[in-house]
């Protein structure tokens, strides 16, 4: 906040082309996806082009920010703005997951018992779904998607829980190493974190294959399949993003971008990683165990 002269000076960045690139990328992605879903032939390629433009935008935009930061153009006020931006972004992500957790709780606590005749649902059950007994897991009175089995909590999911928890430890060790200036330790533990993220994703993919090929548990398996795959799927997507971000940060650490007390990029990704971790704990509890 204070400059060399001890005077409080504001920093305002110059204009940038990247937001415009991002807008075009987002627009292309969205109309591509919508056309794809409507089975228009150019939808799918447009979607991928859009995603590519978005990736290009991130590369360029973050690149600019990194270069400006390395040049020392940012002051501590900018740093705080970035921190707040990241924190509130994570909060918005939490609320996004909350919608899906809400759907899970609502289905389990209300809609399924009601379909089974509880509360005011007796007549509905009798006339529309007679013989349906509420239970969890379920694919509903019409057994949408056919009989299925679930993934047992104490196998791969438990292992994945341990993997993510360990990765939370390794990234913290890496952070301490960064602050203490131990470069090798930093790179090793950050690298371990990336590795653990990748292992997690590998097991998750195995689990999906198992579900689809042997358990007949699919996205179309009624409300159980819907909540299971949407929750774990969006979480997996976030782990993927987080792992990529961690890998980028690893390279930036290797290039020596961060100093003991100036490494917001590292911290932002670490926060993100912890967020992904905490969401997983919720998933493990409510999707797998209970």
């Amino acid at each position: 906040m204070a400059t060399a002269q001890g005077k409080h000076i504001y920093y305002v960045p110059h204009g940038s082309k990247w937001p415009a690139v991002g807008t075009i990328g987002l627009f292309t992605t969205m109309i591509g996806a919508a056309n794809w879903l409507n089975e228009v032939s150019w939808g799918k390629p447009a979607f991928y082009v859009g995603v590519a433009i978005l990736l290009f935008m991130m590369w360029g935009w973050f690149g600019d920010v990194i270069r400006e930061s390395l040049k020392g153009m940012y002051n501590s006020q900018v740093d705080v703005s970035f921190r707040m931006g990241m924190m509130w972004f994570i909060f918005s992500e939490i609320m996004f997951f909350a919608a899906f957790f809400g759907a899970l709780f609502y289905a389990r606590m209300y809609s399924i018992p009601w379909l089974g005749g509880e509360g005011d649902g007796a007549l509905t059950n009798f006339y529309l779904h007679s013989g349906y007994a509420p239970a969890w897991p379920t694919n509903g009175p019409d057994a949408i998607g056919g009989a299925f089995q679930t993934i047992p909590a104490w196998g791969v999911p438990l292992l994945n829980t341990l993997i993510l928890l360990t990765s939370g430890v390794t990234i913290t060790v890496a952070h301490h190493a960064l602050r203490a200036g131990h470069r090798t330790q930093l790179l090793v533990f950050l690298g371990l974190t990336v590795l653990l993220g990748a292992i997690f994703l590998f097991y998750q993919a195995e689990e999906y294959i198992e579900a689809y090929q042997h358990l007949n548990l699919t996205l179309g398996s009624g409300v159980y399949g819907s909540t299971f795959f949407m929750l774990t799927g969006f979480h997996g997507l976030h782990v993927t993003l987080g792992t990529i971000m961690l890998a980028v940060i690893w390279f930036r650490c290797a290039k020596g971008h961060f100093t003991k007390d100036n490494h917001f990029g590292f911290e932002a990704v670490a926060w993100y990683w912890h967020f992904v971790d905490v969401v997983w704990l919720g998933l493990f509890m409510f999707v797998y165990v209970l």
Partner: peptide, 12 residues
């Protein structure tokens, strides 16, 4: 093919 809002699949 999800059933969030489809009673037949246990949604609502």
């Amino acid at each position: 093919g999800t059933s969030f809002f489809n009673a037949a699949g246990g949604g609502d």
